[in-house]
Design a protein around this nucleic acid. Structure first.
Length: 196
DNA sequence: CGTCAGATTCTCT
DNA sequence: GAGAATCTGACGC
């Protein structure tokens, strides 16, 4: 398969459709003459203003402004005062959907730890300076690759406060990957998911 | 294996 | 001023 940057149309769909489709694809960051690549193995969908676990639930603020913009852009923010988390804005402008990238596997000759959303951004050298970056262009882009063969779904992690939204199966991961993050019991409870 | 507290700072009330 | 889409290391079984 010839590597190819994903076009904006790929991202112009609801987050719960984009999130499983991203598994197996590569997130690439060009730094000078080098490109750091990671195979995406774990994602979570945040489905807009009705989703209590989604930052956009509280409405449009300076921080969440990007989410209300057009799809295919980065939403990077700080949690717990220490970790920067990388999201991709999806669905049509105004819906404020996003996909959180939670884990990846190294691609190429590097041996980085990409298991966990905080580690993922650290390893790929992604920071808040990339907030609002257009992901259909350099230096940050998603490359099409072999899709994950076996996908599982579970509840999202760290969103217990979100009432019935916490129970929705919006976390997707490659069942064959060893880099999956989060509590074991959620991984054990996960169930198979078939792409449409 | 499991649970738990602490680090550290931004965001919105 | 409270709480957060996390990670690590300590301790108990």
């Amino acid at each position: 398969m010839k590597p190819k940057k994903l076009p904006r149309s790929f991202f112009n769909r609801p987050a719960d459709q984009v999130a499983p489709d991203l598994l197996g694809f590569h997130l690439c960051h060009q730094l000078g003459s080098k490109v750091i690549k990671s195979r995406i193995v774990e994602t979570e969908a945040y489905v807009g203003v009705e989703d209590k676990a989604c930052h956009a639930f509280k409405g449009r603020t300076p921080r969440t402004e990007v989410m209300f913009g057009p799809p295919g852009h980065a939403y990077v923010y700080l949690v717990y005062g220490m970790h920067e988390l990388f999201n991709i804005v999806t669905a049509e402008k105004g819906l404020a959907h996003a996909v959180l990238i939670r884990a990846g596997e190294p691609v190429g000759d590097h041996s980085l730890n990409l298991s966990g959303p905080g580690r993922f951004t650290k390893a790929l050298k992604i920071s808040r300076s990339h907030n609002q970056a257009d992901l259909t262009r350099l230096p940050l882009y998603v490359e099409e690759a072999e899709p994950a063969k076996s996908i599982k779904v579970s509840q999202r992690i760290g969103v217990d406060y979100a009432g019935h939204w916490a129970k929705r199966l919006l976390r997707f991961f490659d069942a064959e990957s060893s880099q999956i993050s989060g509590p074991r019991h959620l991984i054990a409870k996960a169930r198979p998911f078939k792409l449409k």
